[in-house]
């Protein structure tokens, strides 16, 4: 059983959580209409293309049957070993800060 360390509730079975996908993907900047060229390619890749690593992978989970907070989990996809977890907000803020 995959056990996820929720930053608020502690370690719980994974089926209390909802999976939310790759957290390493960074949204392209808003502002310009993404209808063609590099902008469209950037949005396309954000939505459709995956790194899909065999190894450490950062991903979103929501603790839907607990505190309902979102978190980011780092997990080894080759073994399902859990490496680290952050509140999703902290993870996002750390990423936008230089």
């Amino acid at each position: 059983m995959l056990r996820i360390p929720c930053p608020w509730c502690g370690e719980r079975d994974y089926n209390e959580f909802r999976y939310g996908g790759d957290a390493d993907k960074v949204r392209p900047p808003f502002g310009k209409p993404a209808v063609e060229g590099a902008d469209l390619k950037a949005w396309h890749d954000q939505v459709f293309v995956f790194d899909n690593p065999k190894g450490p992978h950062k991903e979103y989970w929501q603790h839907v049957q607990g505190c309902r907070h979102w978190l980011v989990l780092e997990r080894n996809t080759a073994t399902n070993q859990v490496l680290q977890a952050w509140p999703a907000r902290e993870f996002a803020l750390a990423r936008v800060k230089p």
Binding site: M1, L2, Y14, N15, H57, T77, A78, T79, N80
Partner: peptide
Amino acid sequence: FNTYTQRGQ
């Protein structure tokens, strides 16, 4: 969720 382990949950 994505995984390469050939063991299920």
